[in-house]
Write a protein that binds this DNA or RNA. Structure first.
Lengths: 142, 142
DNA sequence: ACTGAATTGATCATATTGATCTAATGATTC
DNA sequence: GAATCATTAGATCAATATGATCAATTCAGT
């Protein structure tokens, strides 16, 4: 499915998704046709879902983010999930192991807004208790 | 700094970072020069840090991920941060509010590997205690 | 050895690029 | 309104890239 050439291709695209196919081919010492068809196949197979922006600190500096661990009432999981999905500030939602059931990643434009969203989540019917960790600083991200 | 045209440009690039400048210009009803120079400026200003891959579920399905909250010994924060950065499986590291000092996002190719990394982190000199939440399922991500 | 898959490299017409430039337009200040 | 600066438009040029197709060659599996 994914061999070492694919891995190298993915790595190059991870570094700069706007690299031209010709440049990728040169970097990998492959023909352009080959790179074209490998990309096509990786896309068709769902390995590559798309290509996106990496925003810089200048932009992100104005956002605040928190990781919210959520303990859910047992009978209300579907309802809670759906309610969380309705909250636009919830960027990601995962089911997790451990003390809590869900982990929500919440983004807002200010601390006030974040606080309001956290309250909103805490007040959802299916939410038993929450624990929030507000991101203060990004040490690194790769 | 960022006006509504910039926002629309960022939005288009977020959807497909490989879109040609010419296509972006057509979509925004602007001249190619303008789009070129706006991209150049957004990059120069650090708003756009880069362009990357969005990997699909087929690929990610083979990875396991955990969010590790870390309480650090007070005098050892720099040393601990640096040690965590040396561990390649640590994809992201944040300073957080609350009960813990750091949040590490750890990725591995298997549960065994994840477990080993979690042990490794727990055994770092500056690490007082940890709490790990293994991602079981992605409910949504947007 | 055989077969199917993958790769190569050529070809073609078209599109895009990077860079430069001038003119026009828009925004701001006096 | 005039002056000034910033931004945008659009033209130009040569070089490069693209998408698609194709035939030949190579590779990998049986």
């Amino acid at each position: 499915m994914i061999n070492s050439v694919d891995q190298r291709l993915l790595s190059l695209l991870r570094q700069n998704a706007r690299t031209s196919v010709s440049d990728l081919a040169r970097a990998l010492d492959l023909s352009r046709s080959t790179v074209q068809s490998r990309i096509a196949r990786l896309e068709a197979n769902g390995i590559i879902r798309g290509y996106s922006l990496v925003l810089g600190g200048e932009y992100l500096a104005h956002q605040v983010e928190a990781h919210v661990s959520i303990k859910v009432h047992q009978k209300l999981t579907l309802k809670t999930n759906s309610a969380l999905e309705q909250i636009s500030h919830v960027a990601q939602l995962y089911a997790v192991s451990g003390e809590y059931d869900l982990l929500a990643i919440v983004q807002a434009q200010s601390l006030e807004e974040l606080s309001a969203v956290l309250d909103e989540i805490g007040n959802l019917e299916g939410v038993e208790r929450t624990n929030s960790a507000v991101i203060l600083e990004t040490k690194f991200k790769r």
